[in-house]
Simulated scan of single mutants.
Amino acid sequence: MASAKTPAAAVPPLEKLGAFQRLYLWTLSLAARPAAQLWLALVAFVESSFFLIPADVLFVPMALARPRQAYRYALVATVFSTLGGIAGYALGYFAFDALARPVLAFYGKLAAFEALRACAGPDTTLLLLTTSGLAHLPPIKVVTILAGAVHIGLGFFVISCVLARGARFFALAFLLRRHGPAIRHFIERRLKLIALGGAAVLILLYFGLKLLTGSGQLLSC
């Protein structure tokens, strides 16, 4: 096995890893458990409101191990990520000061959130929901809470979550089913850059149309 050829020094002991790295490795290890699909549902749910590790970390090795189940896993991840988004929305809408603010402060995202809330209009927030769903830009938890805090319509919120997050998970499922392990390096190293580029193009198109038509609210600050 490949692991037998790896020098022991190449893998740092757990006590030398940072908290984020330990959490990442623990999340990754869930893919090998018998209840991996339930863990995927749970991680997809909590990443939308307070968990630090994206569900992609668990989704990719699961889809590689069982490529015939890839679309099923994509559906599970999309549904529970959307449900988690609704939970984050509720935090922002009903309990921002009591619950959402401490969560954002704990992750060091409060300043970024306040800047977004001060400047983003409702339609801009919907755009951020799309880019965060496609490329985690900004982080999903920040934008779901923001959507509730600025009182985005729940129906539009849910539709944006389903479309953006579904597009991400089903695109990953398609690539993993079609190309198998050979595509994993590309996904881990390059796919996020492509998604970021696509999100940037979407943002530029959006603001360009707004400037040309002179309609809608861009920024409120």
Rank of each mutant, 00 (worst) to 15 (best):
residue 202 L to G: 04
residue 115 A to C: 04
residue 13 P to C: 10
residue 40 L to R: 00
residue 6 T to C: 01
residue 5 K to M: 14
residue 189 R to L: 00
residue 138 P to G: 13
residue 155 G to K: 15
residue 166 G to W: 03
residue 189 R to A: 03
residue 73 Y to H: 05
residue 94 F to P: 02
residue 172 L to A: 05
residue 10 A to D: 08
residue 95 A to M: 10
residue 194 I to D: 06
residue 104 L to D: 12
residue 58 L to N: 02
residue 29 S to L: 00
residue 149 A to N: 12
residue 199 A to L: 10
residue 155 G to F: 15
residue 104 L to V: 14
residue 139 P to N: 08
residue 125 T to D: 06
residue 114 E to A: 02
residue 191 L to S: 03
residue 58 L to C: 09
residue 137 L to Y: 02
residue 3 S to A: 06
residue 1 M to W: 11
residue 203 I to C: 13
residue 63 A to Q: 03
residue 107 Y to N: 03
residue 104 L to T: 13
residue 141 K to I: 08
residue 57 V to N: 04
residue 30 L to C: 06
residue 160 S to I: 08
residue 129 L to I: 04
residue 17 L to Y: 12
residue 37 Q to D: 10
residue 154 L to Q: 02
residue 98 A to I: 11
residue 95 A to C: 11
residue 176 L to V: 12
residue 64 L to V: 14
residue 30 L to G: 00
residue 191 L to W: 14
residue 165 R to A: 06
residue 137 L to C: 09
residue 207 F to Y: 09
residue 31 A to Q: 07
residue 164 A to R: 08
residue 57 V to H: 03
residue 43 V to Q: 07
residue 83 L to H: 07
residue 190 R to K: 00
residue 51 F to D: 10
residue 4 A to K: 14
residue 197 G to D: 08
residue 63 A to T: 01
residue 184 R to A: 10
residue 106 F to K: 07
residue 167 A to E: 03
residue 64 L to E: 03
residue 61 P to Y: 11
residue 56 D to R: 06
residue 156 F to Q: 01
residue 112 A to M: 15
residue 88 G to D: 05
residue 140 I to K: 00
residue 83 L to R: 13
residue 146 L to Y: 09
residue 172 L to K: 13
residue 183 I to Q: 10
residue 38 L to Q: 05
residue 121 G to D: 13
residue 52 L to E: 12
residue 185 H to M: 01
residue 144 T to K: 09
residue 152 I to T: 11
residue 22 R to D: 02
residue 153 G to I: 07
residue 80 F to Q: 07
residue 136 H to P: 04
residue 15 E to K: 11
residue 131 T to D: 09
residue 44 A to R: 06
residue 64 L to Q: 04
residue 29 S to I: 05
residue 86 I to Y: 00
residue 219 L to G: 01
residue 191 L to E: 01
residue 112 A to H: 13
residue 183 I to H: 02
residue 204 L to Q: 02
residue 169 F to Y: 10
residue 128 L to P: 13
residue 133 G to Y: 04
residue 205 L to V: 13
residue 184 R to P: 07
residue 133 G to C: 05
residue 78 T to S: 10
residue 42 L to M: 05
residue 142 V to L: 14
residue 13 P to I: 10
residue 87 A to F: 15
residue 210 K to L: 15
residue 3 S to Q: 11
residue 8 A to I: 13
residue 140 I to D: 06
residue 68 R to A: 15
residue 177 R to S: 09
residue 51 F to Q: 11
residue 60 V to T: 12
residue 184 R to Y: 03
residue 57 V to P: 01
residue 97 D to E: 15
residue 46 V to P: 00
residue 108 G to C: 05
residue 163 L to N: 03
residue 116 L to S: 08
residue 51 F to I: 07
residue 88 G to N: 07
residue 179 H to D: 13
residue 88 G to A: 09
residue 31 A to W: 01
residue 107 Y to F: 07
residue 138 P to M: 00
residue 71 Y to Q: 04
residue 69 Q to H: 14
residue 164 A to Y: 00
residue 36 A to S: 15
residue 215 S to C: 14
residue 61 P to L: 09
residue 172 L to G: 05
residue 219 L to M: 05
residue 83 L to K: 12
residue 20 F to W: 13
residue 143 V to H: 01
residue 146 L to Q: 03
residue 162 V to P: 08
residue 65 A to F: 08
residue 7 P to D: 05
residue 132 S to H: 09
residue 106 F to Q: 12
residue 41 A to L: 01
residue 201 V to T: 14
residue 162 V to W: 12
residue 41 A to T: 04
residue 105 A to W: 12
residue 67 P to H: 12
residue 85 G to A: 15
residue 99 L to I: 15
residue 200 A to G: 10
